[in-house]
Design a binder for these strands. Structure first.
Lengths: 253, 253
DNA sequence: TTTTTTTATTGACGATTCGTCATTAATATT
DNA sequence: AATATTAATGACGAATCGTCAATAAAAAAA
């Protein structure tokens, strides 16, 4: 006894492979024609294996979301390494999130659907719990600059308000902004909003609202944005310029 | 020529009937077991009729969303009638939106899924356009107090910022807040956040951020909230107290 | 009144897709 | 070489979707 055994490493590699294939299909063929059968056919494993990894199609969606969460964390870590004041670092974190939605749109949209009851009711509890855990981690990362800014007294909040409140307000607004504007891109583009412009406008107005020093009027944040882009996200910047997005072209040195 | 004709009124009535039934099923049975066959079986019409009205299941979801949009507009109109300053009126608008998600959770969640690519790719263009139109209408309603406050000079924005920017920032934050917290309610409730407390906290910190006078520190907004609840939304308040939601119990006179 | 014409309605049916599970293969120990 | 145990397969049943040929209903014409 002790026969044919799949090591944990191989198991995880296989899981990643299936996830990557699923992402590829979503990117190429869209959601309408995304089926488990197609995933199976594009992967060197049988249906049984795919279902061994993912209890349902929706479970696979959440798995993609979880991969996305890791990418966000990675980008956030880069952001926090930016050499600047806390507001600039927080801006870099905000930047990280738009970069995420631009570079990993499939992950991003999966994340959007993953908070939907239709998906949550069908995904495995295990997967959902993993998602929560990963989200908490990203949350902690984003909380860091807020916490430090509060400690240094460059934010003035009404009594009873905490760093979490600042983060949640901005985070909710960021998500809302990206979700609403990007969902508008589908099919009908009557007056397509400039996503990044809208995003940073909203971001700055919120941060100024917290009286987070220096204020927009006191500092050259457009230059900060250029510095962040070139110093912290050079590869990402290049990738997006190749996507022909004007906003990023104007950022390059 | 000119035989059996269904009047527009009857057609619309039938459409509403199907929508109501669908909502009822979602509320009772959840999303997992929501099928078109079930809708057909619960409705005095055949499958052909149901598909005559709704090109697909997803189209029906968007239709529910559109009904929800009408309810939001209705609540918003009540909100704006509140007898108070512009900030209080805007707060009433914000109140309207939480009330909406509490009283019409199915509509609300449909709205959440309706901005998702999986749905948008399958719903009819016509229905999506109708949705956009309804949303623009609600937007205009919500814009009113902001516009008036700006005209009266009780908001001070950095140059280049408009009423739309204020609205979008708050609206995005509101949606984000409700979506994230309510999605957490499904299944795993480890530390359930107090939705309404979180919502108004975020709201107030944002509005204070715009220096929208009077500031939290200068005015008794908790009392405003009570007044709004009792004067503008008495029925809604009652309904929610029956749902046993503590936040609303404490608001009643 | 009967026939005709046009539109409305039905629900059986084919096509997809999902997810399972009985069967088969692979591997290591005896 | 036989045996035991886990891994992998993919055919299959069940469920769901959306269509469309057939039927019913109603008004106009005969």
């Amino acid at each position: 006894m002790s026969p044919k055994i799949v090591t944990e490493v191989d198991f995880n590699r296989r899981e990643s492979e299936i996830i990557e294939t699923a992402i590829h299909i979503l990117a190429e063929k869209g959601w309408k024609s995304f089926t488990m059968d197609r995933v199976v056919s594009q992967v060197p494993y049988s249906k049984g294996i795919v279902y061994k990894h993912f209890s349902s199609k929706e479970d696979l969606f959440v798995a993609i979301t979880n991969e996305g969460e890791k990418k966000v964390a990675e980008l956030s870590r880069k952001a926090i390494s930016f050499n600047g004041n806390w507001r600039e670092k927080y801006m870099a974190m905000g930047f990280a999130y738009v970069l995420y939605c631009r570079i990993f749109p499939v992950h991003f949209f999966c994340g959007q659907t993953a908070v939907t009851p239709a998906i949550l009711e069908k995904a495995s509890l295990q997967r959902i719990k993993a998602h929560r855990k990963l989200r908490d981690l990203t949350w902690e990362l984003a909380l860091n600059p807020v916490q430090n800014a509060l400690n240094e007294g460059v934010i003035s909040l009404p009594t009873g308000y905490t760093a979490d409140d600042v983060l949640s307000a901005t985070f909710y607004a960021e998500c809302g902004c990206l979700w609403m504007i990007l969902s508008g891109d589908v099919e009908i583009i009557e007056d397509q909003l400039d996503l990044e412009a809208e995003y940073f406008k909203t971001f700055n107005i919120l941060i100024d609202g917290f009286q987070w020093k220096p204020l927009i009027s006191e500092f050259d944040f457009p230059t900060s944005l250029k510095r962040i882009a070139n110093e912290v996200f050079p590869e990402e910047l290049n990738a997006l310029i190749k996507q022909n997005l004007d906003f990023y072209k104007q950022l390059i040195n």
